[in-house]
Amino acid sequence: MKNNDNMQTMTVLTDVCLITCIVQRGSADKVVSAAQDAGAHGATIYYAQGTGEQQLLGVLSVAVESEKEIVEILVPSDYANHIYEAMFIAGELDTPGMGVIYMTQIEKAATYMPPDVLMALREQA
């Protein structure tokens, strides 16, 4: 294929991990701010409904909202563990009913890339 000047270019990001954290409604903010302190750039939050193992808590299960917030954050794989742990601790996920967090490999991602960042990368190489 001929490299045409008119052709649009797309920068594909590799080494990306997706961290998904499901918490009770109202708890997403603290999870996101912990992730951002640990270096995450952005976050997507959406609302959902869901339950975990109800019998585990007995009557205490009324204290757990079935309304959930789902936090999704794309992170560089080198920092993924660090951010993942920060979110785990901020969300107090070692308490039953608080939620769940998981991380998946992303094959590739693409978004706006600042031109000066691309320049700097080219110089490094």
Binding site: L57, L60, A63, V64, E92, T95, P96, G97, M98
Partner: peptide, 8 residues
């Protein structure tokens, strides 16, 4: 106990 506190 801490779990109960954190939940309640």
């Amino acid at each position: 106990k801490i779990d109960i506190y954190r939940l309640v």
